[in-house]
C-alpha cells in the first residue's frame, strides 16, 4: 500500500486541454519520441509544463496516501493480537511512512518542496486515496486492508513503475518490492481469521462487506465516464485504465476470497467466460465523490491528526533546521 488507486481531478475540475499546451513543438516532439522509445525522463531533462504539473500531482497524492494510509492501520498497532502480528504491523506501517518519504523526494525533483506538499494536504487542496477516509473498526478490517487494499495498490503501482519518469519509477520499484511482503502478511492474517473460530469468520465477513464498495471505488470511475487520460497515457504518466486495473484486481483476488468460503456483497459479481472480463454492479459513484469532497466518515479526523502532528512537531523541525546553528566538523 497505499498509494495509487484513482488520482483525482483538481478541485476546480481543470483537466489537460489542448490550449494549455504551449510548449515548443520541436522539443515536445523530441520528448514524445523519447517516451515512445521507452526512455526515462530525468529531473534535469526538458519536459512539457503539463507533464510536470500532472506528475507532481500524481506523485504528491501518492505520497499523501502513504502517510494518511498509515493512520487507520496505525491505530491497531497497540492492539494487534500477539507478538508476531504486532511486529509485522509496526514494520508495515513504518514502511508506508518510508514510502511517503521516498515519494516526496521523487516529487521534489520536479520542483515542489515537501513542506509545500504537506501544506496543500493540510489545507485540503491536495487529495489522497479515498479509501483511507473509512474507519478500521475491528482487527478484521486490518486484515482486509492488509490483504486486499494492498493488493489493489500493487496492481496500480506495478503498472505505474513502467511509466516514463525515472525518479518515480525507481521509487515504485522499491515500494513494490516491500509491498509484496505486506501482501503476504496481510494474506496470512486474513486467512487466519477466515479459517478460525465462527466469531473470527463473522468478524472478517462483516469487514469484507463494509470494505467492498471502497475497494471497488479504489481504481476510480469507469473508463466510459473519464475521458481525460489519453495524453497522460501517451506520456506514460497513467499506465492503465481504471477499468483494466479493476478487472485485473478482481481476476486475481475474487477467486481467492470465494475459495475461503467468504462472500462478497454484490449478487452480480461474476466472470464472463466469453469475454474473460468481470461483471459487477456499479458501485455508488455519488458516494465516491461525496467522500472525495470531504463527506466521508473519517476525512476530518484524518486531517486533524496530521494537523496535530504538524503543530506539535513544529518546534522540533524549527530546531533541526535552524540555519544559524548549522555547524560542521572541521576537516581533519
Amino acid at each position: 500500500m497505499y498509494g495509487g488507486g484513482y488520482i483525482f481531478d483538481e478541485p476546480n475540475g481543470k483537466q489537460l486541454r489542448e490550449e494549455q499546451l504551449h510548449d515548443d513543438p520541436e522539443k515536445l516532439a523530441a520528448f514524445e519520441d523519447r517516451i515512445a522509445r521507452g526512455e526515462k525522463i530525468e529531473p534535469g531533462d526538458w519536459m512539457p509544463a503539463e507533464y510536470r504539473r500532472q506528475l507532481i500531482r500524481l506523485i504528491e497524492q501518492h505520497a499523501h496516501s502513504e502517510i494518511i494510509g498509515a493512520l487507520p492501520e496505525g491505530t491497531w498497532i497497540t492492539r494487534a493480537p500477539g507478538f508476531k502480528r504486532k511486529l509485522a504491523l509496526i514494520a508495515k506501517v513504518q514502511d508506508e511512512i518510508g514510502h511517503g518519504q521516498l515519494l516526496y523526494n521523487a516529487a521534489e525533483t520536479l520542483g515542489k518542496s515537501r513542506e509545500a506538499m504537506i501544506n496543500d494536504l493540510l489545507s485540503g487542496k491536495s487529495k489522497y486515496s479515498n479509501v483511507f477516509n473509512y474507519p478500521a473498526k475491528t482487527w478484521a478490517d486490518v486484515t482486509v486492508i492488509g490483504f486486499l487494499i494492498d493488493a489493489a495498490a500493487i496492481v496500480n503501482q506495478v503498472a505505474n513503475a513502467k511509466g516514463s519518469y525515472g525518479p518515480y519509477c525507481r521509487a515504485l520499484e522499491r515500494i513494490c518490492y516491500e509491498e509484496s511482503f505486506h501482501l503476504k502478511q496481510g494474506h496470512d492474517a486474513f486467512i487466519e481469521l477466515a479459517t478460525g473460530t465462527p466469531e473470527q469468520k463473522a468478524m472478517l465477513q462483516d469487514a469484507l462487506n463494509r470494505w467492498w464498495q471502497p475497494i471497488m471505488h479504489f481504481f476510480g470511475p469507469p473508463d466510459k465516464t473519464s475521458q481525460h487520460s489519453e495524453k497522460l497515457m501517451q506520456w506514460k504518466v497513467k499506465m492503465a485504465s481504471n477499468d483494466e486495473m479493476r478487472n485485473q484486481f478482481l481476476d486475481s483476488y475474487v477467486p481467492k476470497i470465494w475459495e475461503l468460503g467468504l462472500t462478497l456483497p454484490d449478487p452480480l459479481l461474476r466472470k464472463n467466460t466469453a469475454t474473460g472480463r468481470w461483471e459487477y454492479s456499479d458501485p455508488d459513484w455519488n458516494e465516491f465523490f461525496r467522500v472525495i469532497n470531504g463527506g466521508g466518515p473519517c476525512n476530518a479526523e484524518r486531517l486533524q491528526v496530521r494537523k496535530w502532528a504538524e503543530e506539535e512537531g513544529r518546534w522540533v523541525r524549527k530546531a533541526l533546521m535552524n540555519p544559524a546553528e548549522r555547524r560542521s566538523l572541521p576537516v581533519a
Binding site: I90, V93, I97
Partner: peptide, 22 residues
C-alpha cells in the same frame, strides 16, 4: 514508541520510533 507511528514531528522520526518499537 509504537504510539509515535504516523505522528512524529518529521517523517524520519516516525520511522525511527517505529523501528525502535520493533
Amino acid at each position: 514508541n509504537s504510539e509515535w507511528t504516523g505522528l512524529g514531528p518529521v517523517m524520519e522520526e516516525d520511522i525511527a520510533f517505529s523501528s525502535m518499537a520493533q
